[in-house]
Amino acid sequence: MRVTLYAPDIAREAYPGQFVHIFMPPEHRDHMLPRPFSIFGTNRHTGELAVLFEIVGRGTALLAGTDPGSSWRLLGPLGRGFPVLQPGSLLVAGGMGIAPLAFLAASTTIPRTLIYGARTADQLVCPRENLELPGLTVYEVTDDGSRGEKGTAVDLFSRLVEGAGAVFACGPRPMLAAVRSISNRAGIEAWISVEERMACGIGACLGCVVPADGGYKQVCRDGPVFRAGEVIIDE
């Protein structure tokens, strides 16, 4: 699902890797938490902001079923996103992890490579036109080979990591753990975007944390993008 929202203030400021907190409509607001969504893209001229998601629960079902023209309360842009891309960057997206990486890929025209993997072809939900970008090379990979190469994003990543300028990844935890350790072995700087359940979204409630040396980091405020060495991701 892709939903485009008119939010000029957020669209103007947001950069790749940041997220928005979407509050539930009034009839649900008294018993449902706001939901964090990675920003999929912005258009500063039209003031539009897009989010890309799959329906996984009540919040995403409500957003998917919304009527065009309806109003939603948003808070953002939130969190710390990706640094600026350098030539030869390697982007690794697993499943819905494509959302922030498509935004990152679209932020420049320098040569860069995207590995986009999922279990099956129908889980490669990002519209093709969003990845048809000057200077961007895209490798698709699916577990069952129904689109692109047969295998996993990590398989492909192991093959392409040599010589990469830097690594930027978002996807399931096991994928992030593998990307983290492979990049570390190759001596290449890696940035990973971490997902966690959130409540406040602004760093107050300490509900969303990821283990780090000597304690925890807050995903909503210290992240969601971390230098791979900053956090501990269990394999």
């Binding site: 018993h31 359940r197 969303c208 944390v209």
Partner: peptide, 15 residues
């Protein structure tokens, strides 16, 4: 330092 994650879950009309 607090508890290991996950620390939150939404429930029916609560968390």
């Amino acid at each position: 330092s607090g508890n290991p994650p996950p620390r939150l879950a939404e429930t029916a009309s609560g968390m």
